[in-house]
Simulated scan of single mutants.
Amino acid sequence: MPEPSFRQALPSDAERCYAIEIGAYEGDEAATLARIRTRIEQYPRGFLVMELEGQVIGFINSGCAHEVVMSDEAFKELVGHDAEASNVVIMSVVIDPLFQGRGYATVMMKTFVERMRRAGKRTIHLMCKERHVDLYARQGYVYVRPSPSDHGGMSWHEMVMAL
């Protein structure tokens, strides 16, 4: 299995990332192309792309906040984002469905966590579906609570990792 490489997202990655996002997420939970472009433009340091043999196959995007409110829908547009804040909020962890089930998400998440640790961040927050709670717990995230968010008409669970 070839080794993936990682880099910061570029504006030219937006359409490929959007294609992966809509292929991997259900219904209305996928970010729009406009949101993905905004996230790349406003916080490229928090938008990690994974490539395999020169092709983008996954990504993680995030923003930072001084106080985290996971159910804040405006934050998905990076309203209130401050790159210098110590708390990271992950908005998407996505692998192209053609490459899922091979451990790439775990490798990507470990790389992202290490980059955020080196950047001096204190915590990483995320919301996930119930079926992913154990996966994130194995990676060091701690369950916080069921989220009041109903993003995309789904039930979510809040988790956090202290760095």
Rank of each mutant, 00 (worst) to 15 (best):
A105F: 03
S71D: 13
F112D: 09
E73Y: 14
V94R: 09
H81W: 07
G54P: 06
C64M: 13
M50T: 10
Q100H: 02
I57L: 07
V113H: 10
F6G: 00
Q42C: 02
E84Q: 15
R122M: 09
H151K: 11
G63S: 11
V69P: 02
H157N: 14
Q139M: 09
P44W: 08
S86Q: 13
V113Q: 13
E73H: 14
W156L: 11
M109C: 05
P148L: 11
H66F: 11
P146L: 08
A34D: 15
L135D: 08
V49D: 06
S62W: 05
N87F: 02
E15T: 10
A34E: 15
H132T: 01
G140P: 02
V49G: 06
G153Q: 11
I95V: 12
E84K: 15
R122S: 12
F47R: 03
L33I: 13
A19I: 01
S86V: 13
A65E: 11
G120Q: 14
I124N: 02
E26C: 06
V88M: 01
H132L: 09
R45D: 10
V69H: 12
I60R: 05
S86R: 14
K110D: 12
S147G: 05
Q100F: 04
G153M: 11
H157K: 13
E53W: 05
F59A: 04
C17M: 09
T123R: 09
C128S: 08
M154S: 11
L98S: 11
L163V: 02
R115D: 10
D72V: 11
Q8M: 02
L10F: 00
Q42V: 08
E84Y: 10
G80M: 08
S62E: 06
L78E: 12
A19F: 01
H132N: 07
A24W: 03
